[in-house]
Design a protein around this nucleic acid. Structure first.
Length: 713
DNA sequence: CATAGCCGCCTTTTT
DNA sequence: GGCGGCTATG
């Protein structure tokens, strides 16, 4: 063991790393070395004689897991077999191993968002409901929320006592039936089925909780109820749970993350040791000061200090731009300046709230010849040719997978059209066969023409032939499929070289999977890549600027950070301004973004922005004001550390200024008291708590608030 | 049965 | 400003 690594740890870090038995909670602010601590802890456990096989570490992304494995191997000087993965990968492993107890076929497909949407659309239709009134996306959200709370179909049915939940129960039932007929699980099912398996099967629970003497969970603030239950059941034998996280960085409430999991940790495990890591080794003091000032505006939080350890750095810069083209150009110019100073492009990142905002940035970076990489690797797996090839592979493993089968039955075109498909479907339904089984029996289907029968037979023969190769390496199966199914020929005919390149890339990726995996198999490969996420393809070593959403930025750090689009409606996003908790989550998201920066932080907003083709006026985000300057009397110079550009300074000299506590009257809302004032010059916002009980955010320019001389209180 | 073109919904964030 | 699904046409 390389002991010199340990000497670099602080006392509290060491306390967490060398904690022996019993539950442990590591409450850690940003940049406190949290990931490092959890990695060292795994290494230290193995070093002290714990079998790697008995350790389970859960991270938030596959990328994080990969890095942890690598770092662990460096520390120990050898590769180890600790189970380090995401919650979802862990569940796939468990469900495959105990498939009979879980009552599922181990060759299950994992349905991604696109496939889920297709199923849901059909489910809604089969319930004789209008997809306009019951939009598949919203229904999926609703079903997902239920699954994350471990509400299964039966429970919902028994509880459904109003029209909406009764309808939802019908749709949920239908959707679930389709998945099970396709022998498919969606992302949420992976968690739900595992949680139920561990709850209902005592022998599985005992076996696993016995095996995992130590369970470590990173980013615990973003676990949902299902994950929480799984964690509890997994540690039921040894109670050696170690959770790390930071409530201020909880940004996944919308997908079911329950911040109460981390807040109630000490109640769940009363003997828990709590270690706080409050020192920040990442960011300069002024960046931390801004982050701290921002997050202190959140009402529902535990106070926490961020202790800087770095020397003072340069100003935070806030730029006002005309529109997003201009903003992107400003970012590109600043990046060029940094590069001229000798900064490596790999130390620069640009964050934005929504994926659609990457376009303008990409264009500007291309124009300025600045290499970049977009952290959205999932796009690769969304390409038509890739999805086609993968669909063939999925059908080979799981012939029940109807979505995949319907995708490829006539791709490339082989003369099997809608009429033929409908007739086969009817035959399948009548005989209670799977669609694939019905295809096999095509010659018995009287409604089919001889020509159709022959075409189906060719297809089925090809598939059955390919099945004989399933024990070969994944790369060679993929290559066979590409050649034998006519995909290759059709791409060559259309001379789509991009598509062919992509296929080649997929085959190389499969080859490296074959090399790296302990027990490579097509099944494992398909299930793994279904769980790939955006950050997983981010190549940290490449000398290029990283572009990503604020969500993807979690867990990463960069010397130089740009955050663009600091505008009302964008950050905080308009769709999240329904209640205070949503706004607080947006604030945490911004907090995460700011605290990724080590040395320099650049932020910008636009005066105009084109959204969905429509040019509209933007106003600066109220969050900007919360960074710690410009409170009331405009004496922001004394706060120091934040530089606003001229436009910002100019605009703020015009308009009236309000002070919290001040009494005002609005023409329709009546009397109220100022709760907050966001000084943005002519774009200023005033938050008023009216006597009617409602609180409103108003643009000063339009609100026409009457003020009173003096104060009546 | 294949293709082209139109319509509508979409976009907040993701394992 | 894009994608997927549906329809009309050859």
């Amino acid at each position: 063991m390389q002991t010199d690594f340990y000497e670099q740890l602080t006392d509290s870090q060491r306390q967490a790393v060398f904690h022996t038995e019993g539950p442990l909670l590591v409450l850690a602010g940003p940049g406190s070395g949290k990931t490092r601590v959890i990695t060292y802890r795994v290494a230290a456990l193995i070093d002290s004689g714990v079998q790697a096989y008995n350790i389970c570490a859960v991270t938030f992304t596959n990328k994080a897991a990969e890095q942890m494995r690598k770092r662990c191997a460096e520390l120990l000087g050898f590769l180890n077999k600790a189970h380090i993965s995401t919650f979802h990968s862990l569940c796939v492993r468990i469900l495959r191993q105990y498939s009979s107890q879980a009552n599922i076929n181990r060759n299950f497909s994992i349905y991604d968002a696109t496939e889920q949407a297709k199923c849901m659309r059909q489910a809604v239709k089969e319930c004789n409901l209008n997809t306009a009134d019951f939009s598949p996306a919203r229904m999926l959200d609703a079903v997902s929320a239920l699954k994350n709370r471990l509400v299964d179909v039966d429970t919902l049915k028994s509880e459904a006592n109003d029209f909406f939940s009764a309808t939802l129960a019908k749709i949920y039932t239908r959707y679930q039936k389709m998945l099970s007929e396709a022998n498919a699980l969606d992302f949420d099912d992976l968690l739900l089925k595992t949680a139920y398996l561990l709850k209902d099967c005592a022998d599985v629970r005992e076996e696993l909780s016995n095996r995992f003497r130590f369970v470590l969970i990173d980013e615990y603030q973003d676990t949902n109820h299902a994950q929480y239950r799984i964690a509890k059941l997994l540690v039921s034998q040894h109670n050696n749970i170690c959770a790390t996280g930071d409530p201020d960085q909880s940004i996944y409430r919308w997908r079911g993350a329950d911040i109460r999991n981390i807040l109630a940790f000490e109640k769940d495990w009363p003997q828990a040791t709590v270690v706080k890591l409050e020192e920040n080794f990442r960011s300069t003091p002024n960046i931390l000061k801004a982050a701290d000032s921002l997050i202190s505006f959140n009402q529902s939080r535990k106070e926490k200090v961020l202790i800087p350890t770095r020397p003072e750095g340069g100003d935070i810069v806030i730029n006002c731009c005309e529109d997003q083209t201009n903003e992107a150009q400003t970012v590109a110019s600043l990046i060029s300046e940094l590069a001229d100073e000798g900064v490596s492009l790999r130390d620069i990142a640009v964050f934005y709230r929504i994926n659609a905002m990457s376009r303008a940035l990409e264009e500007a970076l291309i124009k300025n010849k600045i290499p970049y990489q977009i952290v959205r690797g999932i796009e690769f797996y969304n390409r038509k040719e890739i999805r086609d090839l993968l669909a063939f592979l999925k059908v080979l493993i799981n012939p029940e997978d109807e979505i995949a089968l319907l995708r490829i039955i006539n791709t490339p075109a082989r003369g099997i059209g809608k009429t033929t498909i409908d007739r086969i479907k009817a035959y399948a339904a009548a005989g209670r066969l799977s669609f694939y089984e019905a295809l096999k029996q095509a010659d018995k289907i009287s409604s089919l023409s001889a020509g159709s029968k022959a075409k189906v037979a060719v297809f089925i023969n090809t598939m059955e032939e390919l099945k004989k190769q399933l024990d070969k390496p994944v790369a060679s199966i993929a290559l066979s499929v590409f050649e034998k199914t006519g995909l290759s020929a059709s791409l060559k005919d259309s001379s789509d070289t991009d598509a062919i390149d992509n296929i080649n890339e997929l085959i190389s990726a499969a080859a490296s999977y074959d090399e790296q995996s302990d027990e490579p198999s097509l099944l494992d490969y398909l299930q793994q890549i279904s769980l790939f996420s955006d950050v997983d393809t981010y190549d940290i070593g490449r000398p290029s600027v990283a572009l990503m959403t604020l969500h993807s930025a979690k867990g990463l750090e960069f010397d130089n950070v740009f955050i663009v689009g600091l505008e009302e409606g964008l950050l905080p996003h308009e769709r999240s301004s329904e209640d205070d908790e949503d706004i607080e989550e947006e604030r945490r998201l911004f907090f995460v973004g700011i605290t990724r920066a080590k040395l320099r932080l650049f932020m910008s907003y636009c005066q105009y922005r084109t959204i969905r083709g429509q040019l509209s006026r933007s106003i600066p985000s109220s969050f900007l004001y919360e960074l710690g300057t410009c409170r009331n009397n405009g004496s922001h110079n004394d706060v120091g550390g934040i530089y606003y550009d001229d436009e910002y300074q100019r605009s703020r000299t015009f308009s009236p200024v309000f002070t919290p506590g001040q009494l005002v009257r609005h023409v329709s809302f009546g009397l109220g008291r100022v709760k907050d004032f966001v000084d943005m010059g002519e774009n200023s916002i005033v938050v008023v708590s009216f006597n009617s009980g409602q609180t409103k955010s108003l643009k000063v320019r339009f609100a026409n608030l009457l003020t009173f001389e003096g104060d009546f209180s």
